[in-house]
C-alpha cells in the first residue's frame, strides 16, 4: 500500500503572530517553524497503517525551500521519502491542485492530511482535493478508544483498512460518526486520532539520507494565482482588562449588578 501524507510548514503554535506596520504581511523574521501539529498526527497514522498493512509513506510539502526541514522531521519519524514543491503563499485551492497532480503521478491508495493548518485555519485542502479527484473523503478522523487506551499504547491505527475499504470514525457535532469509504480516499486527522511519536536519534540520522525530490510549480504545470486574495491584516479588537474579585460574594454581586448576567 502506498500512503501519501501532507505536511505544511507553520509557525510554532506558541507564537503570537505579528503584523508588519503597513498591514500587508505577517512578520516571519524570528519565528520558529514546525510541522503543522495535525500533520504530525497524519504522519503517525500513516506510519501505523504502513506497519500494519505493509507499504510506503511519501511526504509532500508545498512551501519555501526551508520546508524541507519539516519533510525531514516526518522522515525522521519514519516516513520513506519526500517531495517538496517550492512555491510561496499558495492558497488552499492552489495546494489542492498541486496535490492533484502529484497524486496523478504517485497513485497512492490513501492520502492522510491534517484537518486544518494552524496558521491559516482554513480547513479546506483535504475536502477540495477529494472534490477535484472525485474520491471519497473522511474528515476529522478520530477513534473511540481514548489516547490513554491500550490500543494507543500499542500504536494500533485508528483507521481500519480491510481490502479496498477504510472505516473511519469522525468527530462531528453532537458525537462520533462512522463512515466507510472505498479506496483510494482522503482522510483528514483530528486531535484524538493518536499521539504522534517523537523522532529517535537513529531516525534523525537515517532521515538525512532519505530521498527528497524538489520540484518547481512550473514543472508541475499548475496555475497558482490566488482564488483567495488577502487585502489586509489587522489585529482583532482587544478585550478590556477586567478586575480581580476578592471572593464569591463579590463575584456574584458584580455578575448581578454590574454585568447583569444573573
Amino acid at each position: 500500500m502506498k500512503i501519501l501524507v501532507t505536511v505544511k510548514r507553520v509557525t510554532d503554535y506558541e507564537r503570537k503572530a505579528k503584523i508588519t506596520p503597513d498591514g500587508s504581511a505577517l512578520v516571519t523574521e524570528g519565528m520558529n517553524f514546525v510541522p503543522n501539529p495535525f500533520d504530525e498526527i497524519a504522519v503517525e497514522e500513516a506510519l501505523r497503517l504502513a506497519k500494519t498493512h505493509g507499504g510506503e509513506v511519501v511526504v509532500v510539502s508545498i512551501g519555501p525551500k526551508d520546508a524541507v526541514q519539516q519533510i525531514r522531521q516526518a522522515l525522521a519519524m519514519g516516513a520513506n521519502r519526500g517531495i517538496l514543491v517550492e512555491a510561496e503563499d499558495v492558497d488552499p485551492d492552489g495546494v489542492a491542485r498541486i496535490l492533484q497532480k502529484i497524486i496523478a503521478d504517485e497513485a497512492p491508495n490513501l492520502v492522510v492530511m491534517g484537518k486544518q493548518d494552524t496558521d491559516n485555519d482554513a480547513n479546506q485542502v483535504g475536502q477540495l482535493l477529494a472534490g477535484y479527484l472525485d474520491w471519497p473523503q473522511a474528515t476529522f478522523a478520530s477513534k473511540k478508544e481514548g489516547l490513554d487506551s491500550d490500543q494507543e499504547k500499542k500504536q494500533v491505527p485508528g483507521v481500519v483498512i480491510e481490502g479496498e475499504k477504510a472505516t473511519v470514525i469522525r468527530e462531528v457535532d453532537g458525537g462520533l460518526e462512522t463512515l466507510q469509504v472505498s479506496l483510494p480516499a482522503i482522510v483528514t486527522t483530528d486531535l484524538r486520532l493518536n499521539h504522534p511519536r517523537f523522532a529517535s536519534l537513529p531516525g534523525i540520522m537515517k532521515a538525512k539520507k532519505k530521498e527528497v525530490k524538489e520540484l518547481g510549480v512550473d514543472a508541475i504545470g499548475v496555475d497558482v494565482s490566488p482564488k483567495v486574495r488577502i487585502l489586509e491584516y489587522k489585529e482583532p479588537a482587544e478585550r478590556q482588562a477586567g478586575v480581580t474579585v476578592s471572593d464569591v460574594d463579590q463575584l456574584l454581586e458584580k455578575l448581578k449588578n454590574e454585568a447583569k448576567v444573573l
Binding site: 488552499p92 485551492d93 480547513n123 479546506q124 477540495l128 477529494a130 472534490g131 477535484y132 474528515t139
Partner: peptide, 23 residues
C-alpha cells in the same frame, strides 16, 4: 461553519471551481 459545513463546503467549492473563505 459547523462540523458539517466545514466538511462539505470546500468539496462543493471544488465542484464549482470557486474560491472559498472559511469561518
Amino acid at each position: 461553519a459547523t462540523a458539517h459545513g466545514k466538511d462539505v463546503m470546500p468539496r462543493a467549492a471544488a465542484l464549482l471551481q470557486a474560491g472559498m473563505a472559511s469561518d
